[in-house]
Nucleic acid binder design. Structure first.
Length: 502
RNA sequence: GUCCCCAUCGUCCAGGGGUCAGGACGCGGCCCUUUCAAGGCCGAGACUCGGGUUCGAAUCCCGAUGGGGACGCCA
């Protein structure tokens, strides 16, 4: 049995898109499942749009997602080079073979002529395929024109009246009639190979056993099978994955919001959440399980279990998945991942790559208040903004709207006679003394207290928030975090404000 | 237009001739909570339609309808 070799073949013309991630993931899973090899091939034959920066981004994204490849431009391997732009001689040789065997011919039609033909066909209700006008050209005359420098593209001669059938590993038997296929350009007039041709040459040379790709390539498959046949090469197995759509059922695109790995990472999604969510689009581990780690998926993956229909990308479910993984992640990991958002939101006084030891210890103690109740890492500083965001003018305005607010403020200020930081018990004791002083209790007491101390109507439990505030207030400037006002100071400032104001 | 693919709750997946058609997200309610979120429990919610095959069809077959893809010197 030949070893299983699969490939992921992105074109470096932009960022890695979630649809492509799913294709990469399914390739990765199949390779891992069967002890096969995953090859990354860069399809950069579109010279205009391909960039090295995009290639680097894609490689970085795959690594971040945990989908390491076995062979590729960075990983190396025995079937390189792994960029199509570096494999030109291979295509030229295959093109020569086809030309010599009479399976390819030169076409001198101009883009304008082709466009006119296509428009006419469309208007007449027939498929807008290439008419085959240059088929009849004398081969040696064509060769002379090309040799003389006239621009000409090489087309593959598609045999007439044949049924091309293959068994798609996810869809089952599929067949196309060759009459609907126009002779495809295999080498552009500039000498650069076209997609359908380069793919075949590379998949054969790289000994790819299974081609797993998006459904948009399904109708390319018969052309490619014909090329394998004409070149005398053995066809790989094919499997076509359904599309990923937006909520409006249109192909997922930027107007649906974030769609690229880079964006999801920036917004604070964990890679394992994204990968787990994407795996569930079109595949199920069986039973009713949904939360499955990458290695466990690899143990269970089978192409036969992949769904046939298009899937709508559901942001809410991704958010739920992310929350799930955030809850099970360690505090250290969460802090490492979330630190940049504290820097971004101005909580860190210096843009350091890592928090100071003092800041780390403090943040680690405060993080659980945020990590369990937020969708994304980037929302953590906001959830903890009661620590740094307390502003006496704003809170004064808020608390004056609050029944009993001013009263509670004075009482709380009076009760805190020494500056000992409040822990949970000290806070409770203080609160009950305020209750005695004001006669307010329950919600009437705690709501104003919450507004006074946190500056917000809602947030984490006061039992946890209050001690966190005072622990934060004890931090020195060397911690590298914005200073935090103690509870006592918060109450004192407002109390003073109300005294002088009224 | 032509060809190809697809069709179970709003969404993602189970189920694949006899099931109360199952789970998850989301939604609604209740509980927990001195607030919000989280969490727990409960609930509403689907086999696109029409023919056939069969004792029996969501499941198999055909058709219609709907959705998507392809028809590039893009990939």
């Amino acid at each position: 049995m030949t070893p299983l070799r699969v490939r992921f073949a992105p074109s470096p013309t932009g960022q890695l898109h979630v649809g492509n991630v799913r294709t990469a993931l399914f390739n990765w899973l199949l390779a891992r499942r069967h002890g096969g090899t995953l090859i990354l091939r860069v399809e950069d034959t579109d010279v205009e749009r391909s960039t090295r920066a995009s290639e680097t981004t894609i490689l970085t994204d795959l690594r971040w997602l945990g989908l390491e490849v076995d062979e590729g431009p960075e990983a190396g391997g025995g079937h390189g080079p792994y960029r199509q732009s570096e494999r030109l001689p291979l295509y030229a040789a295959a093109a020569q073979t086809l030309l010599e065997s009479g399976r390819a011919y030169y076409c001198f039609c101009t883009p304008a002529e082709l466009a006119t033909e296509r428009a006419a066909a469309l208007a007449g209700g027939s498929p807008p395929k290439y008419s085959g006008r240059c088929r009849a050209l004398d081969r040696s005359a064509s060769a002379r024109r090309v040799a003389a420098g006239e621009p000409g593209a090489l087309r593959f001669l598609v045999p007439q009246d044949r049924e091309i059938s293959f068994t798609d590993l996810v869809r089952g038997p599929v067949s196309f009639h060759t009459d609907i296929i126009g002779d495809p350009v295999i080498v552009r007039s500039g000498g650069v190979p076209a997609y359908n041709f380069a793919v075949v040459v590379d998949d054969a040379a790289m000994e790819i056993s299974h081609v797993i790709r998006g459904e948009d390539h399904l109708s390319n498959t018969p052309r490619q099978i014909l090329l394998y046949e004409a070149l005398g090469w053995q066809c790989p197995f094919f499997a076509h994955l359904s599309m990923v759509l937006g909520p409006d059922h249109a192909p997922l695109s930027k107007r649906h919001g974030a769609t690229s790995v880079v964006e999801f990472r920036e917004h604070g999604y964990l890679p394992e959440a994204l990968v787990n969510y994407l795996a569930l689009l079109g595949w199920s581990p069986g039973g009713n399980e949904e939360v499955v780690a990458l290695d466990e998926m690899a143990r269970r993956f089978d192409l036969a279990d992949v769904g046939h229909s298009a899937a709508v990308f559901d942001r809410d479910k991704l958010a739920w998945m992310n929350r799930h993984y955030m809850k099970s992640a360690s505090g250290e990991r969460l802090l490492d991942e979330a630190w940049r958002y504290f820097v971004r939101d101005g909580v860190a006084t210096h843009a350091r790559a890592q928090p100071s030891d003092e800041a780390r210890a403090f943040l680690l103690s405060a993080l659980p208040m945020a990590s369990g109740s937020v969708d994304r890492l980037e929302q953590m500083p906001e959830r903890l903004s009661f620590l740094w965001g307390w502003d006496d003018a704003a809170v004064a305005a808020l608390i004056q709207q609050e029944p009993g607010g001013v009263e509670v403020t004075h009482a709380f200020s009076r009760v805190l006679t020494d500056s000992a930081p409040l822990d949970r018990d000290a806070f409770r004791a203080a609160a009950s003394r305020v209750r005695e002083l004001t006669g307010l209790k329950g919600k009437q007491l705690f709501h104003p207290l919450r507004v006074l101390l946190t500056g917000a109507e809602s947030g984490p439990e006061l039992d946890q928030a209050v001690p966190a505030i005072d622990r934060g207030a004890a931090l020195g400037a060397s911690a590298g975090l914005r200073p935090i006002l103690s509870c006592q100071e918060r109450a004192r400032r407002l109390s003073l404000r109300f005294d002088s104001g009224s």
